[in-house]
């Protein structure tokens, strides 16, 4: 390894550390707080529950972060979350098996992403509006095909265990996806071009980058991650519910990304930050659930916590960068 490679690593690590250190501190403070006020917080069973709070938002955050970086957002991802496991289940009921069902679910997810992307990029409708439309469309569709009732997730216990029901498996899937997406963002042209498109759309186009391809690709990626998460959760819970996911999981994913340092203005963001953001939100959800706080109070606390975490992140991040930008 040459000296240059080494110093890049050091610098890269340092930059990453600067961006994410503040939010890691927030996460640690929360963990300490909840373990002090509740003896059950740092026990095996609760850590497993905590990991199940974190995993879904962490996976979907990977997609939303890519979209936010290239200047877009997907509000409809929580509805794909609900639709995908139904497609898998119905395909299985039709006798084609779970694997084909999974492939179909992924194809439909990718198609929804393609539609979101094409309407946004080619017809120039802001993605906020496009995906608000598809949000209702997909939700109505899922409710129609399911007649509004949950069904049992098909497949045996072994399959369910592998796909997230057992132990930390869902969390391990989340970590795997986070690692892959981190590599894509930092070490592949796709990630670099995603940043370029969000940072300077005209400039990226002048440099010959196909911005439409990048954006549409990231919409497809986000939808597919939404579909995968919906399927993991359907396996974990054992039931496939037309009302699962929804705007709740979408907001958690977007909030995870933004808390983790991804700019809503586009052009910058980190996947690792998204994982840490999802952890902060997971700790809050899990900690307050343990405390037995009532659901209405809980929403107010989460909302306030998201605001505080974001404000803290933006300003501490600014201090870390020596007051620049």
């Amino acid at each position: 390894m040459s000296a240059t490679t080494l110093s890049f690593r050091q610098r890269g690590t340092k930059l990453l550390a600067l961006r994410e250190a503040s939010i890691v501190v927030v996460a640690l403070v929360l963990v300490i707080y909840f373990s002090v006020v509740n003896a059950n917080f740092l026990t095996g069973p609760n850590l497993q529950t905590l990991s199940q709070f974190i995993a879904p938002s962490a996976i979907i955050a990977c997609g939303e972060i890519m979209l936010l970086i290239c200047g877009e957002i997907d509000l409809s991802v929580g509805q794909i979350f609900a639709l995908a496991p139904f497609i898998m289940a119905f395909t299985d009921h039709a006798g084609l098996g779970m694997f084909v069902g999974f492939v179909f679910a992924m194809i439909v997810s990718a198609l929804v992403g393609l539609i979101n992307g094409a309407i946004t990029v080619l017809l120039k409708v802001p993605s906020f509006v496009t995906t608000l439309g598809t949000l209702f469309l997909i939700n109505g569709f899922t409710l129609t095909v399911s007649k509004g009732y949950p069904i049992n997730t098909p497949g045996g216990q072994t399959m369910a265990n592998i796909f997230g029901a057992a132990g930390y498996n869902e969390f391990l899937w989340a970590i795997l996806i986070v690692v892959i997406m981190h590599m894509v963002l930092r070490h592949r042209r796709w990630g670099l071009h995603t940043i370029a498109v969000g940072g300077n759309l005209t400039g990226a186009t002048e440099a010959g980058i196909n911005a439409a391809r990048i954006k549409i690709g990231n919409f497809m990626l986000t939808s597919m991650l939404g579909g995968i998460t919906g399927i993991l959760e359907a396996f974990r819970i054992g039931s496939t519910d037309p009302l699962a996911g929804g705007t709740n999981i979408m907001f958690l994913a977007v909030a995870s990304g933004v808390i983790g340092g991804t700019s809503l203005a586009g052009g910058s963001g980190t996947i690792i930050g998204g994982l840490i953001g999802a952890t902060v939100l997971g700790v809050l959800q899990d900690g307050f659930t343990l405390q037995g706080i009532n659901a209405f109070t809980f929403d107010m606390i989460i909302g306030a916590a998201i605001l505080i975490a974001m404000i803290a992140n933006i300003h501490v991040g600014r201090l870390n960068r020596g007051g620049r930008s």
């Binding site: 042209r189 670099l192 940043i195 370029a196 969000g198 940072g199 005209t202 400039g203 990226a204 910058s268």
Partner: peptide, 24 residues
């Protein structure tokens, strides 16, 4: 090869990534 009037630089990327933009 062209240097556009608006420079086509991405502010949020480091210098070395800008120098190799789309020719990484």
């Amino acid at each position: 090869e062209c240097v556009y009037q608006d420079l086509a630089l991405v502010n949020t990327l480091p210098i070395y990534h800008n120098m190799f933009l789309n020719r990484e």
